[in-house]
Amino acid sequence: MAKMSEKMKQELKAEKAYNKKHKRMYRLTANDVIFNIFAYLLFGIFVIICIFPFYYIFINSISSPAAVTSKAVTFWPQGFSLETYKAVIEVKDIGQAFLVTITRTIIATALMVVASGIIGYLVTKQEMWHRKLWYRLLVVTMYFNAGIIPWYLNMAMLGLTNNYMAYIIPAIVAPYNIILVKTYIESIPAEMEESAFIDGAGYAVIFRKIIWPLSKPILATITIFGAVGNWNSFTDSLMLMQSKPQLQTLQHKLYNYLDSASDLKSVIQNPDSEVVRRAMDNAAFASVIKYTVSMISIIPILIVYPFMQRYFEEGIMLGAVKG
């Protein structure tokens, strides 16, 4: 087959050279043109749909509150002002929530990555006492779930309700990430470890000097997954921090603001009472602040996003090869 197509390959080469010369990959037929128009249009629209809501929130957050409440903002910012950002900084709640969220993201992610590295390396060691059993014990936890109430009662039992540690300690062991790291470490040539072993290096040294530096790509990948997950999670805050508002995360606060905004809206529907007028004032504030708070919780992701781009594919492909 390979030999037979030798001549055809040459033909293809010639065609490619022709295409290159004429700066295109194909000789376009009418069908191709229609197809291209369709495809570019499709993706163009989809990109706009994906991006526009972010843009809309952004222009609202930097427009003057008056323009926002009078619904003048549609495609461009109206009356540039950072008033709402100032307002948000003044609301102590949000600064505190931001601090909680960012510290939990950093601490929990760092611990998770180090732990995943160590565990990923340990479970490749055949010599370990009952290695298979412990590894299975870890991995199986991905496939079952006790349910929310047993989980909540367990956290309460361990003293992790209304406790900052509830964000950190349960996040340390992440089975999926451990699998990713383990798979990656297994792909590192065993000879490297063996020669280090012969030179008298122990497991700890091998891990620090060889395994850890060589696994950096996959560690970067799980760092991103972990950080995004931690930054975005709000159900843990919702359920565990009910009586400690100062420990609630930014996402949780945002959820509360959005929730109360819709409640205020329903109050405003019967227009002639004292309660309503007061609510109106609050509603104006709520509608202003919700854009800004949303923006604040999106910005960190958008900032790190360009850096995480190149690690996606690796992580996803490795994830497909489980074992």
């Binding site: 989809f46 975005n232 959005l258 992701i301």
Partner: peptide, 20 residues
């Protein structure tokens, strides 16, 4: 651009839905 939405939480998705 099409992978960005995957990285925001559902709360933010709701915030966007609310804005639109």
């Amino acid at each position: 651009f099409t992978t960005i939405p995957n990285f925001v939480s559902w709360v933010i998705v709701f915030a966007l839905a609310f804005a639109i």
